[in-house]
Design a protein around this nucleic acid. Structure first.
Length: 471
DNA sequence: TTTTGAGTTGTTCGA
DNA sequence: GTCGAACAACTCAAA
């Protein structure tokens, strides 16, 4: 009998052997939760220990908005588990097996993590558990269809969104999981550290957090989803779902959303479903190519020239602070700073500005976003940046350089978005807010002049792209 | 193997 | 102001 088997039979003789551990990570909810149901079923009349591990590896790169969101979400989750959530701090490779041993559980249940770090971590935790005669059981994932599942006819992964989306639709999202039984018993006898106090948010304000808040937000959004395709591009209007951070922490599962939209054929509903598929696509790309969290998806563009040095550092600082002198760009960056969230249209505009007007490599911006965003998701964020930089999955035309001024005039036609976030321009009426250089007294309130000439930098960006392609 | 059609989100210029 | 063409060439996916 090998050691693992022996260990298992020893564990099987423990009195409360049927207790299981539910290790929460990016699934901070109780409904439509296959892994939690599996933990309950595995307990078979015993109790379930709900666990969260505060892992410095994940906490460190997150800024205050995302950390505060996490902590609030954990409090909400614990409340819905009758206060039974056990919170420990440390490396999951040590903490999870230790907790499993303390409670005498033979199985630790999780929703599979698709990210590079999560997969390494889970493999190490599984190994440690097995060495102890226990096992890690993964059920479901944060995606409607698990990353790696949607493949081409020859079994290889998709590299283009549209065919992926078609194949994704043919598989179809599974139906939501059944409700959690009312009579689940939670293990409460272990000591934990509790959920920490929120970090200092400064002036950042967050919307309501947690499963119930997500449900409510989605309910409100559903009432307006038919207008989504028309309004989603308008940062001056409340047309987006505002569900990104709820999805990031699994307070709601995309499967639940797809189910609620089943049968909805309005352009708005279809467009929103497509946005959910984008989230699945980028997770799938990262699953197959974990190195693309940091490296170019298209390595042939690695020779692209970028700017470095004190002058560039100063420009990057201006970009982060929302003081580039381009009103639409600055409004976006200030929204990011004020809310830990930035409208999708502005994510593209400010990214294009950093990469193509300031000639700074995209990871610089991607890291800043991950730090500043409350919804910072590695797959969506970094592949979104790669898309803008032209290094990503989309073979996008090289000439796609956003004009920061006309983008503002097009998508914030009345200048309301600019005035909301850039008070120095609040005295400029209508679309004049986008062109303070044309307005008498446009610079009377301390707003900076443009730090670059967009026309020149656009040509420069095109030249560098051509150079990197060897022409 | 070859062929064919297509590819999230744009800008500029000239008629 | 509006509209269509030009802006390159390449890669992907499927037939």
């Amino acid at each position: 009998m090998d050691p693992i088997q022996r260990e298992r039979s020893r564990v099987d003789t423990v009195a409360d052997v049927t207790d299981t551990v539910m290790w929460f990570r990016r699934d901070l909810r109780t409904s439509d939760h296959p892994a939690l149901l599996a933990a309950v079923a595995g307990a078979d009349g015993g109790s379930v220990l709900p666990l969260f591990v505060l892992d410095d590896h994940l906490l460190t790169p997150a800024g205050a908005p995302r950390t505060a969101w996490l902590f609030r979400s954990l409090r909400a989750l614990s409340a819905s588990l009758d206060g039974a959530l056990l919170v420990r701090r440390g490396d999951p490779v040590d903490v999870v097996p230790a907790v499993a041993a303390e409670v005498g559980a033979s199985h630790v249940h999780v929703s599979a993590d698709a990210g590079p770090y999560g997969r390494r971590r889970d493999a190490a935790v599984a190994k440690a558990l097995v060495a102890d005669g226990r096992s890690l059981v993964a059920t479901g994932s944060p995606y409607a269809i698990g990353p790696g599942t949607v493949v081409k006819k020859d079994g290889s992964p998709f590299a283009v969104f549209t065919p992926f989306s078609r194949a994704w639709g043919e598989i179809g999202a599974p139906r939501p999981a059944r409700d959690l039984p009312d009579d689940v018993r939670w293990v409460r006898r272990l000591a934990g550290v509790g959920v920490p106090e929120d970090p200092d948010l400064g002036t950042v304000t967050l919307p309501p957090v947690g499963e119930e808040a997500a449900r409510q937000r989605f309910g409100e959004f559903l009432d307006a989803v038919d207008a989504y395709d028309e309004l989603r591009d308008r940062p001056d209007r409340p047309g987006t779902s505002q569900l990104s951070a709820h999805l990031k922490y699994g307070e709601v599962h995309p499967r639940t959303l797809v189910e609620a939209l089943r049968g909805s054929t309005s352009p708005g509903a279809r467009t929103f479903r497509t946005e959910l598929v984008w989230r699945e696509f980028y997770a799938d790309v990262l699953w197959h190519r974990p190195e693309t969290a940091r490296e170019y998806y298209r390595p042939e563009l690695r020779t692209m020239r970028f700017d470095h040095g004190p002058a560039t550092d100063e420009q990057v600082q201006a970009w982060k602070a929302g003081r580039t002198g381009f009103p639409f760009v600055d409004a976006g960056m200030r929204q990011l700073a004020a809310e830990g969230w930035i409208h999708n249209r502005l994510r593209m505009v400010v990214a294009s500005f950093l990469v193509k007007d300031l000639h700074v490599d995209w990871p610089v911006g991607a890291r800043h976003f991950m730090q500043a965003l409350r919804d910072g998701d590695l797959a969506s964020n970094n592949h979104g940046w790669q898309w803008t930089a032209g290094t990503g999955t989309d073979a996008s035309p090289f000439f796609r350089v956003f004009n920061p001024i006309t983008q503002g005039q097009k998508f914030d036609p009345d200048g309301a978005y600019v005035r909301k976030y850039v008070p120095e321009l609040a005295h400029l009426a209508g679309k004049a807010a986008h062109t303070p250089w044309d307005a008498a007294g446009g610079y009377d309130h301390g707003y900076p002049e443009p730090i670059v000439d967009h026309k020149e930098e656009r040509v420069e960006a095109l030249d560098r792209y051509a150079e990197a392609r060897g022409r």
